[in-house]
Measured scan of single mutants.
Amino acid sequence: MATGGRRGAAAAPLLVAVAALLLGAAGHLYPGEVCPGMDIRNNLTRLHELENCSVIEGHLQILLMFKTRPEDFRDLSFPKLIMITDYLLLFRVYGLESLKDLFPNLTVIRGSRLFFNYALVIFEMVHLKELGLYNLMNITRGSVRIEKNNELCYLATIDWSRILDSVEDNYIVLNKDDNEECGDICPGTAKGKTNCPATVINGQFVERCWTHSHCQKVCPTICKSHGCTAEGLCCHSECLGNCSQPDDPTKCVACRNFYLDGRCVETCPPPYYHFQDWRCVNFSFCQDLHHKCKNSRRQGCHQYVIHNNKCIPECPSGYTMNSSNLLCTPCLGPCPKVCHLLEGEKTIDSVTSAQELRGCTVINGSLIINIRGGNNLAAELEANLGLIEEISGYLKIRRSYALVSLSFFRKLRLIRGETLEIGNYSFYALDNQNLRQLWDWSKHNLTITQGKLFFHYNPKLCLSEIHKMEEVSGTKGRQERNDIALKTNGDQASCENELLKFSYIRTSFDKI
């Protein structure tokens, strides 16, 4: 039985969820670079991206490699990797027998973001014989899940209580170790020597080791999670996991709180800001991140802002960003909400898709409305799209047979046209069989910064309504002859009103 693990408890099935942008060198404390989270699957090609990484700022997932063999891993080693800020997950990587050479110096898994409450997941690794993470000293947050690894031993010899604050939620089941077939031998045991430290858990006094050649490092209890030197002297209180010299914040392997210019500090002093819960960055760093993602459509890219001495992905609820200094300031009234469309555009074809934009005031991208039916549609669209004030790209209304009016965009005031449909149009209306009105132009103002209007096959939309939009939106004169079809717009509506004058002759039985 794995020490510190839980057996036999019912657990939810383990679901495996399925960018080499360097964020800056980590400095003297770390020998390499800070790398983003990685999802490495199918083959070993991307694994080489770990070569210079000291910190993975995010998670590391290595999974679904069915053609790899043990010899493929023999020359692979990433000794610079010290810390993973989120979680480490391995799933069905064939041929991998140990992690001792792959990650010989991995010391800390912070667990800032977890995989279903777990910071370390080893699942269905069919050839893994031992973990071998002999320098792993601290899992700051989260638990361990090690399950269905039929060859995995050296679990009962690990004292997880020396690595985690609590072992109650560890789930370590259905491994070879369960069948008591392992016969784990710690260093020196074969020669009758006791080389590794022994600890007591559940009444068992057991030597602690990761492999037959690597003991588990056990520091004096007084050192807590700070770690200790090879001689057993406690590291500085700002260290986490390990250090090369005692009581020196510049000799830590990793930091308990924050890293700044080669030393570990309790908090980031001005003019620095907390970033990702582990390091200090200056304003320029946060500003660069903001600008890199301002026009990016890459998933996970955030326009970072500053709030409460932190550089964070977005302002919290009730705050909006001051564009001059990136500071989050309290909103006066309802907060603006910028919604970034991942692929640059979004099609609204149902109430469900409209709900995804609920509360958005600025759309960074283009909207395509293609709704053919739905219950209580006008009210639903207004509830979900009615706060949109600005669209950076274009607005396209296409084959939306259920629409009679666009009044559900009740606050839309600006279409920038930074991206144009077919390279020309910022407003595009095609084949809307029941569209009769755009907006009530006596109450609604709309500016279209650039781009043209396109109207074709809107049989109940009168040309007068379209011409009014040209005047109000500032697009009059931009359109070419064929942009607004004269014969297919309003051709099934009563669009022309003329005053009919009647004269009559009164007659009676005795007068003409």
Rank of each mutant, 00 (worst) to 15 (best):
Q61T: 01
N242W: 05
P70I: 13
G188S: 05
Y87I: 00
P36C: 15
T68S: 12
S161R: 09
L289R: 14
G227E: 02
T85F: 01
C223S: 00
I82Q: 06
C293V: 06
M83L: 08
P31Y: 14
Q303E: 14
S98A: 03
P269T: 12
Y94I: 04
G333L: 14
T199I: 10
P334D: 09
N257M: 02
C280R: 03
E238S: 07
E238A: 10
E151T: 00
G32L: 05
P104E: 01
S143D: 06
C264E: 00
M65K: 00
K148I: 01
T107W: 04
H236S: 12
Y171T: 09
F103K: 02
P36I: 09
P36T: 08
E124H: 00
A119P: 01
D165I: 07
R113C: 05
V173T: 02
W278C: 02
A119K: 00
K310A: 09
V144S: 03
H28N: 09
L63H: 01
T194D: 05
G32T: 04
G188W: 11
L89G: 00
F123Y: 13
M137V: 08
M125V: 00
F78T: 01
M83A: 07
C264A: 01
L133M: 06
T45S: 11
N117A: 04
P334M: 15
K191Q: 12
N202Q: 12
T250K: 13
L106N: 00
L260F: 03
E33W: 13
S213M: 11
A230E: 14
T85N: 04
C209Y: 00
I40N: 02
N170W: 04
E238T: 04
D165N: 08
P197V: 09
K251S: 07
L63S: 00
T140L: 06
D159W: 15
C255N: 02
C234E: 01
T85Q: 13
C235D: 01
K310G: 15
S324N: 04
G142D: 06
F66T: 00
E238Q: 10
T157K: 06
C153P: 00
I163A: 00
D288L: 14
P336S: 08
N308L: 12
F66K: 01
M83D: 02
F283S: 08
Q276G: 14
A119S: 08
D247E: 07
F103Q: 00
R263S: 12
D39E: 04
V253S: 13
D165A: 09
P70A: 08
N309T: 10
S284K: 02
G142Q: 01
Y118K: 02
C268P: 02
F91R: 04
V265Y: 12
K129S: 06
Y134R: 12
S112F: 08
T250P: 03
N105W: 02
D75Q: 09
V34P: 07
V265M: 10
K224C: 07
E49L: 11
N179S: 06
P197F: 08
Q299E: 14
N257V: 00
P270K: 11
D184V: 14
L60H: 00
F115S: 01
D277R: 06
C196N: 06
I201P: 10
H307A: 03
L102F: 12
K193T: 09
N309P: 01
G142L: 04
R69E: 06
D169F: 15
K294M: 04
L332F: 09
S112M: 15
V218R: 07
D178G: 10
I158W: 02
P79W: 06
C219S: 02
N150F: 15
P330V: 10
L81T: 08
D177V: 04
L44D: 08
D178P: 06
F258P: 00
C228E: 05
A198Q: 04
L99F: 07
G232Q: 05
P197R: 09
L60G: 00
T157R: 10
A230K: 12
V305H: 04
M83T: 09
A190I: 08
C280G: 02
L327R: 11
L90I: 03
T229M: 10
L240I: 09
N150M: 13
S225Q: 10
L50C: 01
I122G: 01
H48K: 04
C223L: 01
R256S: 11
K67I: 02
T211Y: 02
Y134N: 07
L327T: 10
Q299P: 13
K294P: 07
C219H: 01
M38G: 12
C280K: 02
G262Q: 15
Q245H: 10
G241F: 01
G111S: 00
P334K: 12
K251W: 03
G95P: 00
C264W: 10
F258E: 04
Y87G: 00
E130H: 08
L99C: 06
L96C: 08
D72S: 10
F91I: 00
G132D: 06
G111A: 01
K310C: 10
H302F: 12
N309C: 03
C234V: 00
S284H: 08
S225V: 06
P270Y: 11
P246V: 04
N195F: 14
D288G: 11
G58I: 00
G37Y: 03
G241M: 00
L289E: 04
F123I: 00
K310H: 12
N150Q: 09
P220N: 09
F285R: 03
L106Y: 02
R110G: 08
L106G: 00
K217H: 08
I222V: 11
H59D: 01
T189M: 07
L29P: 14
I158D: 03
E33R: 15
P104W: 00
F258N: 03
A198L: 12
C255T: 00
V93T: 02
K100G: 07
V218Q: 10
E33L: 13
F78Q: 01
T189W: 07
Q204W: 04
E97M: 14
E314H: 03
E57I: 06
G227Q: 06
I139C: 04
T85G: 03
C209M: 02
N135H: 08
